[in-house]
Design a protein around this nucleic acid. Structure first.
Length: 490
RNA sequence: UCCCCAAUAGCUCAGCUGGUUAGAGCGAUUGACUGUUAAUCAAUAGGUCCCUGGUUCGAGUCCAGGUUGGGGAGCCA
């Protein structure tokens, strides 16, 4: 316990989230935070203070006769303050209470000539360049709080359902998952690595004695756990070294991968839909003020856009819409049928015409189904086996697999998953067909050898969920420090 | 990786078919005024016109290459 100062009791700091709801007029409190704006008058100075605990700011009132001019003149946007004073009813509009300062301590100054954040709207592109400071904006404060709530809600959802969280490895030696280019993990000298006689790099001298990479998915390891613990999920970082330059891709992102024994593809779809709805409901229940701010922000941005590019629904309306409607569940074959007979296809308005069964669906096709045809989230299942991964369960027709994609408006694929192939002979055949090295996967195959059972799972891209919940348009703005090609600053 | 677009003051942007000293709003500073709400009014300061090369008497402006950013596509979550 810190020793109390004589005469002047040191007050415990109260968070602004709690302060602004207080009606304990006359109570002495201490607030700490960062200055958003300062407005000066002859006799009185107003400071809006924010400490990240809420989207709302605390109005601090400094009486020029109480607080020394020398202190007031050093307060600028961005400065950190500790303010002790009394809670009073606000005389102005815009807030119920304000803090009448008795004492102000400047914890950290901010030079106004250099501080880049101004009390005005900044472009998201500019804020990305100052990601170390963008938490101090209302927008990123809101996003950060919503992000936390979603992380928490995900763990709550699975915990309440009796799932166990599994930490799957971040460094992996298997490169057989086929989920994209990987980042190599090595301690070998890049200029002069040890070489074998044929000139190839000799990884037996590397840290693990073999080539290793950052994980592209925790699925295979999660399957191992599920085939013993029944229901498990992972929630960890995922790395893809793809040269993807879009508003929906990151080189480092977070993924939720539940894996369930005794689930078929229908159980899998039920879980995916239930989870997404739970998360949306949680956001609506727990992030009211932040969502309201983000909604207003989005509406202002929408006004700059062309009418046809505007989203038809306001943010919270869009979230409610997901809650109120059952996701449309269709097979790939049905999707092709709808697309082939669509007026869009007949009038040749697709860049990639839909002319035969077996083609991979392009994002324009997915968007048509979700935004134009069904006008609700869509789950597509039973894709041709040629365009899907080796571990997906082959259907009796031997041409489709029990894959599932959950498609959302604007975002596209938010979830990808499948029922897994549990039959050892079929799995081995599929691996041969797709040139997956059996030898490296011996541990995966043993789960099919010893007590194999039907099981299923899926992957939810956490940042894509965040795009949907916050209404933001670029995935780089829903993660604090985005990793993209040519960018690993901060 | 491919296609398209952009880069000018701290920020957002204007700058025409190449032509003298490159502008505005916001922000900052100073002053005035005021229980203010991104306060208001006035004045002041503030520029490697992204980089390299080329065309030209002359390039912020035209051309080539590059860098960075944005939108779209592919890959996917």
């Amino acid at each position: 316990m810190p020793t109390k100062l004589k005469g002047m009791e040191s007050l415990k700091r109260t968070k602004i989230r709690d302060l602004i709801q207080s009606e304990e007029w006359g109570k002495e409190v201490t607030a700490k935070g960062w200055v958003r704006t300062k407005r000066e008058s002859k006799n009185v100075v107003f400071i809006t203070l924010n400490d990240g605990s809420t989207i709302h700011n605390l109005q601090v009132v400094l009486d020029a006769e109480v607080i020394r001019e020398e202190v007031i003149s050093r307060i600028h946007s961005g400065a950190a303050l500790s303010v002790t004073g009394e809670i009073v009813r606000s005389l102005g509009a815009g807030q119920n209470m304000e803090l009448k300062a008795h004492e102000v301590e400047i914890l950290g100054e901010a030079n106004p000539d250099e501080y880049p954040l101004q009390p005005k709207k900044h472009s998201l592109e500019f804020l990305r360049e100052i990601a170390h400071l963008r938490f101090r904006t209302s927008t990123f404060g809101a996003i950060t709080r919503v992000r936390h709530s979603m992380i928490f809600a995900i763990h709550k959802f699975f915990n309440d359902k009796g799932f166990y969280n599994i930490h799957t490895p971040i460094i992996t030696a298997s490169d057989a998952e086929g989920a994209g280019e990987m980042f190599r993990v090595t301690i070998l000298d890049p200029v002069n690595p040890p070489r074998k006689e044929d000139g190839a790099v000799d990884y037996s001298h590397d840290f693990f004695g073999r080539p290793t990479n950052l994980t592209v998915s925790g699925q295979l390891e999660a399957e191992l756990a599920a085939l013993s613990m029944s229901d498990v999920y992972t929630f960890g970082p995922t790395f893809r070294a793809e040269n993807s330059n879009t508003s929906r891709h990151l080189a480092e992102f977070w993924m939720i991968e539940p894996e369930m024994a005794f689930y078929d593809i229908h159980d899998n779809m039920d879980l995916a839909e239930e989870m997404l709805k739970f998360l949306v409901q949680y956001a609506l229940d727990h992030c009211r003020d932040d969502l309201e701010f983000l909604s207003k922000r989005q509406q202002e941005e929408e006004r700059q856009k062309k009418v046809e590019d505007r989203s038809p629904m306001e943010l919270r309306e869009k979230l409610m819409f997901v809650l109120d409607n059952a996701f449309e569940r269709i097979t790939y074959t049905e999707a092709i049928d709808v697309l082939q007979n669509s007026p869009y296809n007949r009038k040749n308005r697709f860049q990639f015409p839909v002319n035969r069964w077996g083609i991979d669906l392009q994002s324009e096709h997915e968007r048509y189904l979700v935004e134009k045809h069904y006008r609700t989230p869509v789950i597509i299942t039973d894709y041709p086996k040629q365009i899907k991964a080796f571990y997906m369960k082959v259907n009796d027709d031997d041409r489709t697999v029990r894959a599932l994609d959950v498609l959302f408006p604007q975002i596209g694929e938010i979830i990808g998953g499948s029922q897994r192939e549990e039959r050892l002979d079929v799995l081995l055949r599929r691996m041969k067909e797709m040139n997956i090295p059996e030898k490296e996967m011996w541990w995966y195959l043993e789960t099919r050898k010893f007590g194999t059972v039907p099981h299923s799972g899926f992957g939810l891209g956490f940042e894509r969920l965040m795009l949907f919940i916050t209404g933001m348009g670029n995935i780089r703005d829903v993660i604090p420090f985005p990793r993209t090609p040519q960018n690993a600053e901060f």
